[in-house]
């Protein structure tokens, strides 16, 4: 518009006000849509992560069928994989340490099968077997 000259009529002021309000709404509605999309993706991602073990299994099977190199053997003393559902590795390590400390059992004598975060709560549940 370029109204740097200064004097504007009341009608101009009214038009600027209406356009200004519409622009503020338009920009923030677009932001709202983008934030909603981000939230949707973030909500879907744990579900995708939960499917990861299956995908890993399929890959392993495919590798065996295809004659590709087999994955490296587990380290001595390891008793299998731990499945993490909606849980960060850091949190899992902390939970395992807490469980070992509470039970008074060394960590290498415990076997954790899975650690799953329960929706709506900050705490994670874990299953432990001796």
């Amino acid at each position: 518009m370029g109204l740097s000259g200064g004097e504007i009529s009341i009608l101009d002021a009214l038009i600027i006000s209406v356009i200004g309000m519409l622009i503020v709404f338009a920009v923030l509605v677009i932001l709202m849509a983008v934030v909603m999309l981000m939230g949707l993706i973030a909500d879907k991602s744990p579900a995708l992560a939960a499917k990861m073990p299956k995908i890993r299994f399929k890959k392993k099977k495919q590798a065996e069928e295809g004659g590709e190199a087999a994955p490296a053997e587990l380290a001595p003393g390891t008793c299998g994989e731990l499945v993490l559902v909606k849980t960060e590795e850091r949190d899992a390590a902390m939970i395992m340490a807490i469980v070992a400390d509470t039970l008074g059992t060394p960590l290498n004598e415990l076997r954790f099968k899975s650690i799953k975060r329960v929706d709506g709560e900050d705490a994670a549940t874990d299953k432990a077997e001796d």
Partner: peptide, 22 residues
Amino acid sequence: PKSLLLGAAAQFGIYVAFFLAV
């Protein structure tokens, strides 16, 4: 994210004061 609509609506005062100042 719907909060953004409330943040937009509250800018009403800017334009009312602008209009009155003119």
